[in-house]
Design a protein around this nucleic acid. Structure first.
Length: 776
DNA sequence: AATTCCCGCCACGCT
DNA sequence: AGCGTGGCGGGAATT
């Protein structure tokens, strides 16, 4: 129960800052920045961010983290791009590549080689990528962000890049965090999410919360849409001949199915979500699989009945562009032009599958009817950790992504959708997992495993190719008790797990029941205070079992976190997880939370298992700290990364930390190895050899200064020694390292903040969790 | 001039 | 009343 927080650092990182300057910079009004400001007022720090819970099916550890969105005034002038750059440069080549991809997000678009689709005969493909970010990298700083850089399509790519196409379990998404990380205002995220929801790539869980299902259900969803489209007679309308005219027979469809599509109220009728489904239906029933914007607009207008006029048409078209941009990012369509008598008309060609196995549709429940339902579909699944923050990206995948969209569906590429996912490519969270075994038998050398956050333990154990990114060391096995896992999840979160075996091992978080959570939350008060404080400080730690900071916590109002959210998504986390727990995921005993803002620059903290937060400050003396974990600043990683084999070109690298590093005696955090002593100091407790866990934090902001320490945390952070990097660099590097691409961009931005409280408007259907699971 | 589509106002509906 | 959502359309950037 008690969590000890060894060290903590300033979580607040500078990042938020990048502001003014940037802006000033030009006109760049990046959305990010500017918007942020104007946009929601954030509640400030306290609002901590959302917490993520991740659960695995097995009841894995949930992780939660809150995002702290701090608004600290840091004014670092970083621009998002700058961060990226930093990161990139800092990062190893692999990462660099990956990051670049992601970050920069190359246009996924159409042209990808992968996609075989040939241009349509009659159509001309647009060559340019729509989203091309081009140089987005241009970095902004300099350039004003061109309109393209702010495009919904590009934004969507960034969004998609945050999550794996085929997560093994649903990943919890906080819209706040996403918007923060991507540096855009929420409104834009809604646009994306609504479209994604229409295809069940995400499901709404609760206010501000969505779960990411990726493309797991995509085919089934498309099959269902196709069925409905036919049912509604869209195919008639789409007939090539007629297509042009867009005329449509009656609206038979419309209300035809009651589908929810139209069912819900007016507002909903017009929803982007529904429109998106209809739009997709048109493709699916079309012989040519090409739909002109004009035809689609007309068809949709009629349905909606609002016939009025041209303005309606224009509005519809605007919306269709929004949808099309998202679908393009998904690589489901591409833009083309259809030649007609009078010239060419903008149109889109379907790139996705058109034929489905019969079984496919059966399973799916279209979201439409429920928006939420969608969630339900998958819903039951446990959530995994939120990706947005996950760091990493998938290397391999990335590569392919480079050219293609990050989100590219191609399973093929990756490999199997159904097969076990190669985490190396995409991990659900893309986080880095590190397992460290101290003292354990195997050699100390850390092995890298890929990042799946999940249960690293068993299952996937072995990383296939070493993947570059994030993984940095893991030692062996799950077996030994001593090891711990650390997740570096995205920038925002880092989790440490204790090995399951550990005696005191915390119960798995995942297992924790909601009640527990609630309870916890409620309890929070006392503890809460601290909790809060910590949170405010930028970090949050949870202890074992209960530790999981539920993601809901995020919702919790800052003040009291009592969250009560009745609505809390059932599906998420925990509860379900237990069921699955057969797997025995490692239970996380420790969590590290790193605020996004902070970036990993700073190190963070460790909690040792079993210790309460309160304990943070005071570690039980004599008690060995159990957890050996190390947090490393990204910079450090990069440093080590050096060891990776391979040149830059090489994709794979494994991080191997020097044994020394691993040794109990020394941990390296960041680049620098720290002596135990130091650690001890920190902890106060004597480190056992075995477990010495320590946390080191490097401070980013104030490297030298002790100030970096959190009050509570006593740790003092040694200056990170980054091998090569100067502080500045280091930090940045780290950020880069951990951050999600999308994030990166936004890094600078301050978080908009959280809004946690509010009511949710949509009803959540979530209630029941479907059981099916995708997991694994 | 036409096409795209960013931006953010403001209404809806739930709490 | 407050807040999350998200419809909507002005108008700017691009083509």
């Amino acid at each position: 129960m008690e969590v000890k927080c060894l060290a903590l650092k300033d979580l607040t990182s500078p990042r938020k800052g990048f502001t003014q300057e940037d802006e000033g910079h030009g006109d760049q009004k990046e959305n990010i920045y500017a918007e942020r400001r104007r946009s929601t007022p954030l509640k400030s720090a306290e609002t901590s961010g959302p917490v993520f819970a991740m659960t695995r099916k097995g009841g894995p550890p949930d992780m939660v983290h809150v995002t702290p969105i701090k608004h600290t005034p840091l004014a670092e002038p970083w621009t998002p791009t700058a961060n990226l750059k930093m990161l990139i440069s800092a990062a190893g080549p692999d990462i660099r590549d990956r990051e670049m991809r992601k970050v920069l997000f190359r246009p996924i678009e159409n042209e990808e080689p992968e996609s075989p689709d040939a241009p349509v005969e009659d159509t001309e493909v647009e060559d340019s990528c729509q989203f091309e970010a081009g140089d987005e990298e241009d970095d902004d700083t300099e350039k004003k962000p061109s309109r393209k850089q702010k495009s919904l399509g590009l934004l969507c790519q960034k969004f998609l890049a945050l999550y794996p196409d085929y997560p093994h379990c649903p990943i919890w998404i906080s819209l706040d965090e996403v918007s923060t990380n991507l540096g855009v205002e929420r409104r834009r995220i809604y646009d994306i999410v609504n479209v994604l929801e229409s295809l069940v790539l995400v499901g709404r869980i609760a206010k501000n919360s969505y779960s990411w299902y990726g493309r797991l259900r995509l085919e089934a969803t498309l099959a269902e849409l196709q069925r409905r489209g036919r049912q509604q007679g869209y195919h008639l309308q789409m007939d090539p001949a007629t297509e042009g005219r867009g005329a449509r027979p009656g609206r038979e469809d419309d209300r035809a199915e009651g589908d929810a599509v139209s069912a819900c109220g007016n507002r909903k009728d017009k929803s982007l979500r529904i429109m998106s489904q209809k739009f997709v239906m048109l493709f699916l029933v079309s012989k040519t699989q090409t739909v002109t914007l004009d035809a689609a607009a007309k068809i949709l207008i009629e349905e909606s009945q609002d016939s009025s006029s041209h303005s309606k048409y224009k509005t519809k078209v605007r919306r269709l562009y929004d949808i099309a941009n998202v679908l393009t990012s998904l690589r489901l369509i591409k833009k083309v032009h259809v030649r007609e008598e009078r010239g060419r008309k903008p149109a889109f060609k379907w790139l996705g599958p058109v034929e489905f196995k019969s079984s496919a549709s059966a399973a799916v429940t279209l979201p439409e009817a429920t928006q939420t339902k969608a969630g339900a579909v998958l819903g039951g699944a446990k959530m995994a950790r939120h990706a947005s923050f996950n760091v990493t990206p998938t290397p391999v995948a990335a590569q392919r992504l480079v050219s293609s969209a990050p989100s590219s569906p191609r399973r093929d590429v990756t490999g199997l959708p159904s097969q076990p996912v190669d985490y190396s490519k995409k991990t659900p969270g893309n986080s880095v997992v590190c397992r460290l075994q101290f003292g354990s038998s195997t050699d100390n050398r850390p092995v890298c495993s890929s990042g799946s956050p999940l249960p690293p333990s068993s299952t996937r154990a072995v990383p296939r190719a070493p993947h570059p990114e994030h993984v940095f060391g893991a030692a062996a096995s799950s077996s030994s008790s001593s090891h711990c896992l650390a997740y570096l999840s995205q920038p925002s979160v880092v989790m440490l797990y204790r090995a399951p075996d550990t005696p005191e091992g915390p119960k798995s978080l995942g297992a924790e029941s909601d009640e527990g959570r609630k309870r916890r939350r409620d309890e929070g008060e006392e503890e809460g205070m601290e909790f809060k404080k910590q949170r405010a400080a930028g970090f949050l730690g949870c202890e074992e079992g209960s530790a999981e900071p539920h993601r809901e916590a995020a919702e919790a109002s800052p003040a009291g976190h009592t969250r009560t959210s009745p609505s809390r998504p059932v599906g998420l986390g925990g509860e379900q997880s237990h069921g699955g727990s057969s797997i025995e995921p490692p239970q996380p005993s420790h969590y590290l939370y790193v605020p996004n803002n902070a970036g990993l620059n700073n190190l963070n903290f460790l909690f040792s298992a079993g210790q309460s937060p309160a304990g943070l400050a005071r570690p039980p003396a004599g008690v060995p700290t159990l957890v050996p974990y190390v947090l490393m600043p990204s910079a450090a990683l990069s440093h080590y990364r050096l060891q990776q084999q391979g040149s830059e070109a090489c994709n794979k690298l494994s991080f191997s930390l020097p044994a020394a590093v691993m040794s109990p005696a020394h941990f390296m955090v960041g680049a620098a190895p720290y002596g135990l002593a130091a650690a001890s100091e920190i902890n106060g407790s004597a480190p056992s050899t075995q477990d010495k866990s320590r946390l080191y934090s490097s401070v980013t902001g104030a490297p030298h200064s002790p100030s970096g320490l959190h009050q509570t945390a006593r740790i003092h952070t040694p200056e990170p020694l980054t091998p090569h990097t100067p502080k500045e660099t280091a930090p940045s590097a780290s950020k880069a390292f951990f951050q999600t691409p999308g994030t990166l961009g936004s890094v600078g931005s301050s978080a908009p903040a959280g809004r946690k409280r509010g009511s949710a408007q949509r009803r959540l259907d979530v209630g029941r969790p479907p059981t099916d699971q995708l997991d694994v």
